[in-house]
Design a protein around this nucleic acid. Structure first.
Lengths: 356, 356
DNA sequence: GTGAAAGCGCTAACAG
DNA sequence: CTGTTAGCGCTTTCAC
C-alpha cells in the first residue's frame, strides 16, 4: 500500500503543496505569529496528510537548540540510581527533552571525553550526578555559561558558587539524625562506613555524623571511620575488620544503603544478629531497604524529587537563558525507622531522649 | 586567559589557517584517503591548537548518521532493567554511539510518540526491550528497513520474521527447568505467577512451565496460573488468594524476580516460612536475589550478555547496511539454586530424579 | 501576511 | 592529492 522508501516529507514539500514558501510553513508549524489563520490551517492539514515529521537535526543546526539533555551517572546498576534516572528522564520528556545516558563512573578522563561528545552533539544542558571535588571541566562550563545542574552531590568553587545550580538533600542533617538515633538507642561505639571522600555527600554526611557524636558527648575517633567508596564489597571488608576489634562497635552508620547491605552481609556472616547484636542505619532509602527481612532503618533522601527539581531548574535555565534565580535547592531528609536499628525491640533509652 | 565566548572553531577556520579548503580538512580529520601526509599532519596540529571540536549535528544532517541509538525501557526503576541499561549504554559507548533513554512503560501511544521523536532526531537504530505482541509500528520499521533490535522480549510477525533481529534467553527452557526443579523437590501443586500475556517472555515461560508439568505427569490447571503483569503488588495479591485456597500450592514459580519478591512478602505476611512451608523459584536473577535472607532460587538470564549482543548486532546492521546475517540469538538460561526452594534442606526426592 | 535569500557546519560529487 | 560546487532541512533576517 505504501510505496517503499518514500523520501521523508519536508517543509518544502508542504510549502509546494500549499502554494506558499517554506518560511510560512515554518512559522505556521511553530505556532508563531505572522501567518493568517487560513493558511495556518491549510498547512496543518497538509502536514497531517503528507505525514510530515520535523527533522530535529536540521532545526538544531540552525537554532542551536537540540531539546536533548545529557545525564552523567556513576553506575546505573547501583540500586540508588535507577529511580533517579527514571525521575530525570520522565520529567525531561514531559518538558519536551530527551536524555542521553552517560554511565561514566568516577573516571575523570571518561567524563571529559563524554562531555566533549555531548557538547559536540549540541545538548542543551547536562545533569551531573557524578560531580567530584576536583572535576576539572566545571570552571570552563561556568565561564561559557553552559547550562548544567549538579544533583545529589554538589561542588563548591570559590567565587563562582552562586552560578552553580544544585539540588541535594541536607546530608549533614541526615547523618546527624542517623547518629542521634543510634545514640538514643544506647549506642556509644558507632562504626561509620563512609563513602568516597571526593564527594560532597561523603564530606557532609561524615561532618554531620561527627557533629552528632560531639553533641552526644562522644569523642569522634578516626579509627571508627572507614572509607569504603560507596562500595558494597569494601563495606563488607571494613565491617569484618571492625568486628575483629577488641572493643567492637555495637552499631554501624553506613553512608549509603548499598554499603549498609554490605555491612549486613558481613555481620550476618560473622554469626551476629541484626539488630540484637549489631544495630544498623543506612542512607538513601533504596527499594530493597523495605523488603521483609532486610527492613533497613535509613535516611530517605527524596530521590524522585531531586530528579524532578534538577530537570526543572535546568530547563528554566536553558529556556530563559538567564542566570539562575535559584541556585541551590536543599531538601530535608527523613529518618525511616524499620527494624535494623532495633528501635522496635526496646525503643529509646529514657535517659538519652532529650527534647529535640 | 581564555577570551570569553570564542565562537567555536569550525573546519572552515582550520582550512583557512592551513591554506586549504574545508573539504580537505574534512577528509583529513575523518582519516580518509586522498590527503597527503604533510597536509594531514598540519591539519591535525591546527585542530589541536585551535581546540577544534566537531559539530555532530551538522555532520548528522549531511551524512544521515547520528551515532546515537534509542533505548526503549519499560521501567528503569524496576530492578531488572538497570543492569541491562548499563550493559547497553556502555557497549554502545564503546562502539562510538550514545544512547537516548526512553522510559515508556507498556503504553503504546507513548511508545509511538517517542519513536517519532527519536526518528526525527535521526537516531541510527533502536533497541526495544518493551516489545508487545500487538505493537503497531513494527511492520513499518521493517518495511523501511530501519535498524532495530528487540532484546529480552521478541516479537513474531508472519512473513517478516527473519528480518527481526532479537536477543533473548531461552525462556521456555528456563521455566521448564524451574518447574522440573520444584517437582523433583516433591512439589505437585505449583502456583504460577505469570507476567503480562502480551509479552513473549510470559508466553514462552508459561508454555515452558506447562510442558514441564505435563512431562512430570501433572495436569496443568488454569486455576494455578495468575496473570500478574510483572507487578510486585499484583503478585502479592495473587499469592494471598492462592494461600486461601482449600488445597493451596506448596510451591510458587514466579515468572520474574520482582514478582517473586512479592510472593515472598505475601507468604511471610501470612505467617508461613520459605522454604519450609512454601518453596519459591523466580526468574531473572536480579541482584537482590542473592542477598542473605532473600536467597532466591531463580533462573539466570545473562542480562549483561543480552545487552552487549543486542548492541553489537544493531551496530553491525547499521554500519554494514546489509540485511542481518544473524537474526536471532537465544542464550541458555541457568538454574541458580539458593535457599528459597528448599533444596539445601532436603535435596531432590530420589524417586523423582530421572536422568535428564 | 508572505516571500526571497542566506546560512548553520559539515560531507559528497565531480573536476582538475 | 586538492578544490569547486552544491546542498542536507530548517530558521531567520529583511524586504515587500
Amino acid at each position: 500500500m505504501q510505496e517503499s522508501k518514500p523520501t521523508k516529507t519536508t517543509i518544502k514539500d508542504i510549502a509546494q503543496a500549499a502554494g506558499v514558501t517554506p518560511t510560512t510553513v515554518s512559522l505556521a508549524l511553530n505556532n508563531r505569529p505572522g501567518v493568517s489563520k487560513k493558511t495556518r490551517e491549510k498547512i496543518f492539514r497538509l502536514a497531517e496528510t503528507l505525514n510530515y515529521e520535523p527533522n530535529f537535526t536540521a532545526r538544531s543546526l540552525r537554532s542551536k537548540r537540540s531539546y536533548t539533555l545529557g545525564l552523567f551517572m556513576k553506575n546505573i546498576a547501583d540500586p540508588f540510581y535507577p529511580q533517579l534516572a527514571k525521575s530525570i528522564s520522565e520529567t525531561a520528556n514531559d518538558c519536551g527533552y530527551n536524555v542521553i545516558l552517560c554511565n561514566v563512573g568516577d573516571d575523570v578522563d571518561l567524563k571529559v571525553k563524554h562531555l566533549k561528545i555531548l557538547r559536540g552533539k549540541g545538548v542543551d544542558g547536562i545533569i551531573f550526578t557524578t560531580m567530584l571535588d576536583d572535576d576539572p571541566y566545571v570552571i570552563q562550563l561556568i565561564e561559557e555559561s553552559f547550562p548544567f545542574v549538579t544533583a545529589v552531590r554538589h561542588i563548591h568553587i570559590n567565587g563562582m558558587n552562586d552560578q552553580i545550580v544544585s539540588v541535594t538533600v541536607d546530608n549533614f542533617s541526615g547523618a546527624y539524625q542517623a547518629i542521634q538515633h543510634l545514640y538514643r538507642l544506647g549506642h556509644d561505639r558507632i562504626g561509620i562506613i563512609a563513602g568516597d571522600e571526593r564527594t560532597s555527600t561523603m564530606v557532609d554526611r561524615t561532618a554531620g555524623a561527627g557533629q552528632a557524636l560531639l553533641d552526644c558527648g562522644i569523642e569522634p575517633d578516626g579509627k571508627m571511620i572507614a572509607k569504603c567508596n560507596y562500595s558494597r564489597k569494601l563495606a563488607m571488608a571494613a565491617t569484618r575488620d571492625f568486628l575483629a576489634m577488641k572493643y567492637r562497635p555495637s552499631a554501624f552508620f553506613a553512608e549509603d544503603d548499598t554499603m549498609a547491605i554490605g555491612v549486613r552481609e558481613a555481620v550476618l556472616k560473622a554469626g551476629l544478629r541484626i539488630p540484637e547484636d549489631i544495630a544498623l542505619v543506612g542512607f538513601d532509602d533504596i527499594d530493597v531497604a523495605g523488603i521483609t527481612g532486610i527492613e533497613l532503618t535509613t535516611i530517605n533522601q527524596q530521590i524522585i524529587e531531586i530528579g524532578r527539581l534538577s530537570v526543572n531548574l535546568l530547563v528554566d535555565r536553558i529556556e530563559k537563558k538567564s542566570a539562575p534565580l535559584v541556585s541551590k535547592i536543599v531538601l530535608q531528609p527523613e529518618l525511616v525507622i524499620r527494624k535494623s536499628c532495633g528501635f522496635h525491640l526496646k525503643g529509646y533509652r529514657t535517659d538519652r531522649v532529650r527534647v529535640k
